[in-house]
């Protein structure tokens, strides 16, 4: 399954251009370039809604070795704006593998770049700070000037409310506990508590770990007013992680203060 060499570039807002090989979809995307030092879990990272609007560089040099599977997802789709890796092995092998990483990215319309010096890129990000970048793959990859322009024109992460973009649009009930070898995802335990979980970009494993501990979960969208959430008579309210800048999420701050205040402990 040796794919033809398709060119790709990663252009940073400061004018630096990295040239490499395209993996995933042929497209152009812009976002804040960040680096992640995790050695495993690329599928969980790609599907973590907290990476919305970000191009993720993985510092671990071999990424994709075990392919992807339908179980290791942390949300309903890939949220990262792009993936940057040092080396994508030509063979992915795992008893759980259903697809290779490049096809997974391509099917999701997400671009990636391999064969660039991720150590150099990471050092730049660490010294200068995170900055915007543009990832261009395929025929567009010849136009470096345009890629730098797109990177410079991309909105700054500061002040960006992405929680409302990634949140669920309607409330839903969650069932399903954590994964175990030989069992897969286990059934929910008999529920002892009802928890309302605000979805600002929630990861499935939060819901699984709460379900494992006997929680029945109602996942609600970002903008549900606290009075509506409390009307569900939960035993607890959980506020999830999420992407972007928390500062513009004033609705979240209001929901937090309203759900905490009426539950003052008895003396």
């Amino acid at each position: 399954m040796s794919a033809a060499h398709v060119p790709a570039i990663l252009a940073l807002a400061d004018g630096t251009v990295f040239r490499g090989r395209a993996i995933g979809a042929e497209s152009a995307s812009a976002g804040e370039v960040v680096f992640n030092t995790a050695m495993t879990g690329y599928q969980e990272i790609l599907t973590d809604p907290s990476y919305a609007g970000q191009i993720v560089t993985l510092t671990y040099p071999h990424v994709g070795n075990t392919g992807v599977n339908p179980e290791d997802v942390e949300s309903k789709r890939i949220f990262a704006a792009g993936l940057v890796v040092r080396d994508l092995p030509c063979i992915a092998a795992s008893w759980r593998k259903m697809l290779d990483l490049s096809s997974y990215l391509r099917d999701a319309g997400v671009a990636g770049i391999a064969d660039i010096d991720t150590r150099q890129l990471t050092r730049m990000l660490r010294e200068k700070g995170a900055q915007n970048g543009c990832l261009m793959t395929g025929t567009g990859a010849a136009d470096e000037k345009k890629a730098v322009e797109i990177a410079r024109a991309a909105p700054s992460m500061a002040g960006l409310d992405l929680a409302k973009v990634v949140s669920c649009s309607a409330s839903y009930d969650w069932t399903g506990s954590t994964w175990a070898l030989g069992e897969g995802y286990r059934a929910e335990q008999a529920s002892r508590f009802h928890v309302v979980a605000y979805d600002f970009g929630i990861k499935h494993n939060i819901l699984r770990m709460l379900a494992e501990r006997g929680c029945r979960l109602t996942v609600v969208p970002t903008r549900m007013p606290a009075r509506d959430a409390l009307a569900l008579k939960p035993d607890g309210v959980f506020l999830s992680n999420g992407p972007g800048d928390p500062e513009p999420c004033t609705y979240a701050a209001s929901a937090i203060s309203c759900s905490v205040l009426p539950r003052a402990p008895e003396p």
């Binding site: 995790a38 495993t40 990861k203 494993n205 770990m209 905490v260 539950r263 003052a264 402990p265």
Partner: peptide, 18 residues
Amino acid sequence: LTDKPAFSFQGHPEASPG
């Protein structure tokens, strides 16, 4: 919080990966 039953963590206690 010292006066209410509420707490918060900045990272990802659910790991996945980690």
